[in-house]
Design a protein around this nucleic acid. Structure first.
Lengths: 342, 342
DNA sequence: CTGAAAGCGCTTACAG
DNA sequence: CTGAAAGCGCTTACAG
């Protein structure tokens, strides 16, 4: 690899000082038209790009953001990331995407590494953000970090972190869904997937129960066990059990679209028709929801808006050099009606 | 936000020089046990993390890698990225994930921005890497960049870039698939999705035709038109047309699993049975391939191995400060048989 | 409009 | 084992 060219090489060839080259490139400060043209042509000739890190050492910004998700293979996270990155890029930020597998220890290590890289801000999803019973230490870690660096937690509404948060309004989502189901004449509804260990699941469950009472619906909740409670497989196995019950639920609401899709698989294998024999719904509006013969009625987090909000919130903190202490933004989700319900 | 703590703050409080602190932290060079303990305890107390950029300014490395994909919402890219990032992280690299939308101009801008950030290496997938008719300028850009910085292109086999490349051996994949189909007694096979503008599609098509001749199969290819030829919708629409033909193909091979899933949707809506009335196959072994009632027989790129190879290849170049001029690694894919074929 | 100089926060020979 | 000093590649008051 050839030696990397620096501002001094350009300065030398142009017969000016490094300061002048810097001014010409950044566009800040005065440079004679003649020199500017000369310098810029040299920049072009050598395809010179100033070293951002040297620059950042001066300015104090790295123009980098860290983004932690459990697994980018999960479409929910991929969708949020895509929308976020669009905005970040358009503002000149580059985003480091890290997979934590939802493991608290891994999260801690990634967090430390990001701080070392002096990223301008951090976004964190899943893992400890969504965990109901989180050891105090992991909460404290976040609360320490958010004092040092702009930090946005996103996913589930929670009060124990006093950092800025962007959350989907799961209560509104559940409410809209149940009201819709009631209007369609459904009575017996079962929620499957998830678990109380996960705040979003817990919130949905609580809300579903309270709404059910208000609307006079018969709602039950069947959390799944094991460590893959949000998976397709979990939905499949869970549904197989439900199908044996009598009376069967009229609607099965998967905690997300993967679970819903698993449920659909079980129903179809049993030779039943969706939505005629049984209706299925999901959450998250992930692309697979529309890819199969039966398309899933689901609750969309509105990725575009969500991603924009996440970036906007982080960016404001970066610019103002302040933290949005405990500022919580709830985003109203949107019910998307498709043909897995009648 | 509080002032960021530096090595000097630690040095001052410990009553030693910055050099000693640096030695204690990096573990390079001698430091008395007593000082080491003192310094490390201070590091702990203030949760001090040395600024990687200042460090990198000296060492010349940033320990960062740029990774460009068209869209991380596409599971194929998400899977490769996940496996890659796992290795990168374990070697202390952080990866910047950028979405190019497959747009050549966007790719150029991202490439420039990555060079500015002085990443240690770049991986690029999709977009121009896969394009059959690529304007000379875009080829040249890559060939210039790879001289300056370790660069790995991955996806489709191609010779026009003289950079290092990791590619799926699509020819082998197609061959295995067709041999399997023949052994199962299938005769009339149609490939749908993709287009000649995309090298992987083109390779698959050519190979399919030549193998067909050898095996005595009746293979036809129906590329789709429009700009979403790899989508679920494309597979759906394409299949609807095929279903009207007489005789119908016995097997329809989607160019990827999304297309295959779209085809499945069309077949089921027509009231036909898979695999009894018609068989469907895909490529890529994306998670949706197993999520639906009919699970797709597909060709897996072996993500784990693939991602490992991509990182390994890039890492070698970074370490040796050389470029693997035109080094091409083909990875043999793996046929995964499921129930969309009988 | 321009250049010399200081400084961003580290690391690393070098001398002791 | 330790510290003073130089240097990584920029930017930015400052003086002219």
């Amino acid at each position: 690899m050839p030696k990397k060219i620096t501002i001094y090489d350009i300065a030398k060839e142009a017969g000016v000082s490094a300061a002048t080259v810097s001014r010409a490139i950044t566009g800040r400060g005065y440079v004679s038209e003649k020199n500017k043209i000369l310098i810029l042509s040299l920049v072009d000739k050598y395809n010179f790009r100033p070293n951002t890190f040297a620059r950042n050492l001066k300015t104090g910004y790295t123009k980098m953001i860290g983004f932690i998700v459990p697994h980018i293979g999960n479409m929910y996270f991929a969708n949020v990331y895509y929308e976020f990155e669009k905005w970040a890029s358009s503002y000149g930020y580059m985003t480091i995407l890290l997979n934590s597998k939802g493991d608290y220890e891994v999260e801690s290590n990634l967090l430390k590494a990001l701080i070392e890289k002096h990223v301008d801000g951090i976004v964190m999803m899943g893992g400890r953000i969504d965990a109901s019973n989180l050891p105090e230490d992991y909460i404290k870690e976040i609360n320490e970090i958010r004092k040092q660096i702009p930090f946005v937690a996103c996913g589930a509404k929670t009060e124990r972190f006093n950092c800025s948060g962007i959350y989907t309004d799961d209560e509104k989502g559940v409410e809209e869904l149940l009201v819709y189901l009631k209007n369609r004449g459904y009575q017996r509804i079962t929620l499957i997937g998830g678990g109380d260990e996960f705040i979003p699941s817990y919130i949905k469950k609580q809300k579903a129960i309270s709404i059910a009472e208000k609307l006079g619906l018969d709602v039950s909740v069947r959390w799944l066990t094991g460590n893959e409670v949000f998976s397709n497989r979990a939905g499949y196995e869970g549904m197989k059990i439900l199908l044996k019950e009598n009376p069967r639920p009229e609607v099965v609401c998967g905690i997300n679209d993967y679970v819903a899709m698993g449920a659909i698989k079980a129903v179809m294998e049993a030779g039943l028709n969706i939505p005629m024999d049984i209706a299925i719904t999901g959450f998250d509006d992930v692309s697979i929801a529309t890819m199969t013969p039966v398309q899933i009625t689901t609750v969309s987090p509105r990725y575009e808006y969500f991603g924009k909000k996440v970036f906007g919130s982080l960016h404001k903190m970066i610019k103002n050099k302040t933290d949005n202490h405990s500022k919580m933004t709830l985003i109203k989700p949107e019910l998307v009606i498709r043909n897995s319900t009648r």
